Amino acid sequence: MSEPAQGISRADVAHLAGLARIDLSDAELDHLASELPAILEHVASVQQAAGDDVDAMSHPVPVDNVFREDVVVPCLSPEEALAAAPASDQQRFLVPKILGEEA
């Protein structure tokens, strides 16, 4: 892996922000231009810590799904489930419309 580039300019940060579709203020661009080289150095050191003999993993310990038997058991009828609902319509909970939905 190549060494991280030193001297990242404000224009470089603005270009990266544009690619990531992040709107940064002038103060944020200046701050990140000075901070980004140190961040890249830290990333490079972490990449070097995991050598070629270390497998990539998402969890440090094996993760297995635990499944149970799918057994049909008695449950509430739609009428019983909706009995305490403040409002219902066609065997469904009736809730207020949100986000300007049309009727």
Rank of each mutant, 00 (worst) to 15 (best):
P60E: 08
D70T: 08
P74V: 10
A56Y: 09
V46W: 03
G51E: 07
Q47I: 11
L40S: 07
D64S: 15
D30C: 06
D30L: 04
A44N: 00
A50H: 01
V63W: 12
D53K: 11
P60N: 07
D30V: 06
F67L: 02
A44S: 01
D53P: 05
F67Y: 05
L32Y: 15
D52T: 12
P60Q: 07
V72W: 11
P62S: 14
G51W: 02
H31I: 07
P60F: 04
I39L: 08
A50S: 05
V73D: 02
S45W: 04
E28D: 02
V54P: 00
L76A: 00
E69D: 10
A50Y: 01
A38V: 08
V63D: 12
V43I: 12
D55Y: 08
V73K: 03
D70I: 09
V66T: 14
H31E: 13
V46Y: 05
V43L: 07
S58H: 14
D55N: 10
Q48Y: 11
S34K: 10
V43N: 03
L40D: 05
A50L: 04
E41D: 11
P60R: 06
Q47W: 14
A33M: 02
D70Y: 09
H42C: 07
D52P: 11
H59F: 15
D55W: 08
P62E: 15
D70H: 09
S34P: 01
N65G: 11
L32C: 14
I39W: 05
Q48N: 12
E69N: 07
C75D: 12
P37Y: 02
A33L: 03
A49M: 04
A49Q: 05
F67E: 02
C75P: 02
L40W: 08
V73Y: 04
H31G: 08
V54W: 03
D64K: 15
D55H: 09
D64W: 15
L32W: 13
D55L: 11
A56I: 09
V71Q: 02
H42R: 10
A38P: 02
H59L: 14
G51A: 11
V63Q: 15
L32H: 13
N65D: 12
H31N: 13
A33W: 00
L76Y: 00
H42W: 06
D30K: 04
Q47G: 12
V73S: 05
A33N: 03
H31L: 12
V43H: 02
P60G: 08
D30A: 07
A33D: 01
A33K: 01
D70F: 09
L36W: 03
S45I: 05
V61W: 09
P37M: 04
L29F: 00
A38Q: 10
S45P: 03
V43A: 09
Q47D: 13
F67W: 05
Q48R: 14
L76M: 00
I39T: 06
A38C: 10
V73F: 05
F67T: 01
L29Y: 00
V61P: 02
